[in-house]
């Protein structure tokens, strides 16, 4: 007799636990307000990334097309994957001194792991992380970028 009661109690417990689980899914079924997914390409306008989000490395330029990069090469040295290459050229200033200036700051986005070390170690704060994230391109070579804009020059008073 006792075993029959146990048998029935077991069935009852099992069914009630199952119904408890069904209550959870049933609750969400009738509460469409709980939907958490976002409709991505539609919400692009409203989509604001957090300000610290590491999307890609960019070089800070001011309105006069001047940057802070002194071509010292510290970012290149600190990059773990070799995604930064600095090509510098030597120019002679008016007073006859030879000086190393930045020619191209080449950045391979495809190799970057967004570790933030280049931005952190840059002595003149020339780099920053941008919040863009739509990096998909059809050709891998397009992921190699030149960070300094054409015609940009070093800001006066940075290379002290």
């Amino acid at each position: 007799m006792k075993s029959i009661i146990n048998y029935l109690a077991e069935i009852f417990r099992g069914v009630s636990a199952l119904i408890k689980g069904m209550k959870v899914t049933g609750y969400y079924f009738i509460h469409p307000g709980e939907i958490v997914t976002q409709q991505y390409p539609e919400n692009r306008k409203k989509l604001v990334m957090f300000e610290r989000f590491k999307g890609e490395v960019v070089m800070i330029h001011n309105e006069n097309n001047e940057h802070h990069c002194t071509a010292c090469g510290i970012c290149e040295m600190n990059c773990p994957n070799g995604s930064i290459e600095i090509i510098s050229k030597t120019v002679t200033s008016e007073d006859g001194k030879k000086k190393k200036v930045l020619a191209h700051h080449i950045y391979h986005l495809g190799m970057c792991t967004f570790c933030n070390l280049c931005v952190k170690t840059c002595p003149s704060n020339a780099l920053k992380m941008d919040q863009t994230f739509e990096h998909a391109v059809f050709d891998r070579t397009k992921l190699t970028k030149v960070l300094n804009r054409p015609g940009s020059v070093l800001m006066k008073g940075v290379d002290k």
Partner: peptide, 10 residues
Amino acid sequence: KICAFMQCRV
């Protein structure tokens, strides 16, 4: 659709 609504999706 039903499973999506149960899973907080559209």
